[in-house]
Design a protein around this nucleic acid. Structure first.
Lengths: 232, 232
DNA sequence: TGTACATCAGTGAACGCGCGTTCACTGATGTAC
DNA sequence: TGTACATCAGTGAACGCGCGTTCACTGATGTAC
């Protein structure tokens, strides 16, 4: 065990990556349900049983792909936020993050479907996925939090029979924000992925044609719905 | 050929329905990818080749299930609208329809996933699905149209580089509504299913607990976003 | 009303296929003395 | 530095399984005269 890893350790990392890459390629070609260890092995010039040195089962490979996908889209969101000018208004940063998530989704539609589409039947996501799964949400949250620390965000309408749940949500997710903001944020988060899923899954076929400006407009509305003020 | 159908015709209708029912049962158990003609036949006490008298291939059976699902959720939406009092304000009718769609989705989550989840790989929806697929959207549209014919709906903010597409959308979908209303409507439509999908697909796990009031609140916001005015 | 023929639902065997996973093994890489 | 042993990646055969679809067939239901 040395800090400079031996050939064996290095090979293991490379082969593991190659397996995941090939699996992603097959995901894009045939979807998650048809992802097959044998086909991956075949394409890699290995014998199928060899994959069991790297992933104890097909489900574990799926889990790895799911975690990678959540991390990839989370990273895209984080990068988009980091690239904004320091003085950029929160609403502008919000829209930039939304666009980055959409771009990743459209560019990796099968990985997107893996994490935001129908749950894979018989597969239940292990604990290890919950961290990566929350990255996009945390980015959106951080924008709202910044805005709130700045001039305070204009919180949207409060809710009537929702008060208790709103307080619970705020306590859980963002104790520094008013409950109404937490509700608005979670709502916008789900709606953002609704817009992206409809586009990625083909529901906008013959409905929305010029999709980029449509999405940007919708993202701006979402920003407004969480109380961020758009510059004129 | 008589108006009172013979035993053969009646049997055909019944067996076709039995096949679809069993297929739906298996859909709920294992998901669309694992839906198998042989398993359906086995459960029905038939030999697998007999199913080919009713559906020329597995994909045709899937198509029938997809159309049925679109029709079922569309019918749920239409029924919810029809059950409203004649004088009910548009926003109230809107929320009622949203709730009906949600209730259907949560009660038939695998059929919901079939139509609003990841597209089935290698399967492309035939033309016959587009009519049924638009029923929910048309219900929402009709509410907006009524509101517009009444006092006129408060159209939301117009859009900057979206103007041309907004006009095209309005011309295509609702020539009697202002372009901004068409954009708002399609946006709300996608966002509605975003909320429902997140709930149905488990993304609200440990995020939203008391989901009914949360959803109702969000649906009210959607009504507002298309210009419907909520009663105080 | 009765008979001859056409239609059609369902059978059973077969085709060719791919899958996940296990297991005893070989041989190369790494480790400890 | 050199040797003996342990670790581990990859092999190849085998297990048991289920799938979609085709095809020649039987026998019951419907139709036309």
């Amino acid at each position: 065990m040395s800090t400079v890893q031996g050939a064996r350790a290095r090979a293991r990392i490379e082969v593991t990556a190659a397996i995941k890459d090939e699996a992603r390629r097959q995901l894009a070609a045939d979807g998650a349900a048809k992802l097959s260890l044998r086909a991956v092995a075949r394409e890699l010039g290995m014998v199928s049983s060899a994959l069991y040195r790297y992933f104890p089962s097909r489900d574990d490979l799926l889990t790895a792909l799911i975690i990678d996908a959540y991390d990839a889209v989370g990273e895209a969101a984080e990068r988009a936020l980091a690239e904004q000018d320091a003085g950029a208004p929160p609403a502008v940063r919000w829209v930039a993050v939304c666009r980055a998530v959409r771009a990743w989704a459209l560019g990796h539609s099968h990985e997107y479907a893996l994490i935001y589409g129908s749950p894979v039947p018989g597969y239940s996501a292990p604990e290890a996925t919950v961290g990566p799964a929350s990255r996009v949400g945390l980015v959106l949250l951080s924008i709202a939090r910044d805005a709130h620390r700045g001039k305070g965000i204009a919180p949207p309408r409060p809710a009537a029979p929702l008060r208790a749940e709103a307080e619970r949500m705020a306590a859980d997710l963002a104790p520094d924000l008013p409950p109404a903001a937490a509700v608005a944020l979670v709502t916008a988060w789900a709606q953002l992925f609704g817009l992206i899923s409809f586009e990625a899954f083909g529901q906008f076929h013959r409905v929305v044609e010029d999709r980029e400006p449509f999405f940007v407009h919708a993202a701006e509305q979402l920003a407004r719905s969480v109380g961020l003020v758009l510059p004129a």
